[in-house]
Amino acid sequence: MSLTADEATADVAELLFLEPGELDRRLDLREQGLDSVRTMELVDRWRRAGVSDISFVLLAEDRRLERWLDLLREMQGGGAAGAAPAGDARLRTCIATVSLGGTLAEKLDAAAAAGFDGVELLDADLQGSPLPAADVAARCAELGLSIDLYQPFRRAEGLGAAEFDDALTRFRGELDVMAELGTSSILVVSNTEADADPDPDVSARQLATLADTAAARGMTVTFEALAWGTHIGRLSEAWDVARRADHPALTVAVDTFHLICRGEGAGTVAEVPTEKISLVQVSDAPWRTGDLAQWSRNHRCLPGDGEFDLAGPLAAVLAGGYRGPLSLELFDPDLRRRDPAEVAARGAAALKKLVDRAGAGV
């Protein structure tokens, strides 16, 4: 390996003004004094040492030194942190709670029973639940589920200065909720209002400010282009803004619906560096014409039940070394009327079948 475990441990210890032997490998490094700024410094050091795929987002997933050393070993030895073959157990799966009907408690039980590793938690599901955020976190822990992402945060970029100040206040409030949930990533979606500023540099500066605010609390921002976004409606446009922002705590989401319905595909995905993709959302859909938002909110079905080519884009993601989470995000009123356990089980099976198919291109 170009970077040994001893060297990595020494790097961490140096930033904390400790001796390597004083570090607790099983304790969250934040509790030992390692903040986000120092974590970013480690990312820079380890990239210069040859671990080119290391990122702030990967380190933020689990902040124990023992996990970081495993991750570095895997990345340099061709293991889980390298290109993950389709069907590999290390590819994490999750399901968005918006995909299922029922109460939040029923949705979590269904996700766990179906074998998902985690959930994307919709803010409306949390707000509509009698369970406070801390209890939701505890229930997920009991079920063996991670909360991979909290979503969505709207009206966040392309704003005038005064409104962006208000958005930043709202954003800090959402970070407070995330701290109670124990999750570290928030999904920010592109501006869909007619008055959105068209200047990509404005959006980039505002997203960088959000990422700075999140990183100060050990959190990250995942940016998603909604297909009906006023100026940012394609993955290529979201990546252009994220590239301009150039912030280690800012990544993009690949959503198969938004990608395909706007005419993009595997080639677009391949242009985004894998370390800058922190979420892949999967759904199928029938081909339709007309309003994109209504198409999205009412016709996003299980993989295999629609007409989209999902295997091509997913194969491109996996070929680049993406490790997850791979999330099932459905918007289908009929599915939400059904037993959430049934839908989650069908979803897990459909996702596995899709990953197996995508493996032909890996």
Rank of each mutant, 00 (worst) to 15 (best):
L175F: 00
L175Y: 01
L175I: 00
L175M: 02
D176N: 03
D176R: 02
D176K: 04
D176Q: 03
V177P: 01
V177D: 00
M178N: 06
M178V: 02
A179L: 14
A179F: 10
E180D: 15
E180P: 00
E180K: 03
E180V: 01
L181V: 00
L181W: 00
L181N: 01
G182S: 05
G182L: 05
G182R: 01
G182H: 03
T183K: 03
T183N: 04
S184N: 11
S184T: 07
S184R: 11
S185M: 12
S185E: 08
S185T: 12
S185C: 09
L187Y: 10
L187K: 14
L187M: 15
L187V: 09
V188N: 10
V188S: 10
V189P: 03
V189W: 02
S190K: 12
S190F: 14
S190C: 09
N191L: 08
N191W: 05
N191D: 10
N191Q: 08
E193A: 15
E193P: 07
E193S: 15
A194W: 12
A194K: 15
A194Q: 15
D195S: 13
D195C: 11
A196D: 06
D197Q: 09
D197F: 01
D197C: 08
D197T: 10
P198Q: 05
P198G: 09
P198W: 07
P198N: 08
D199S: 02
P200N: 06
P200F: 07
P200T: 09
D201T: 12
V202F: 11
V202Y: 14
S203C: 14
S203A: 13
S203Y: 11
S203V: 03
A204C: 09
A204G: 13
Q206E: 14
L207R: 14
L207V: 08
L207M: 12
L207Q: 14
A208M: 07
A208G: 10
A208Y: 10
T209K: 10
T209W: 05
L210E: 09
L210V: 04
L210C: 08
L210I: 03
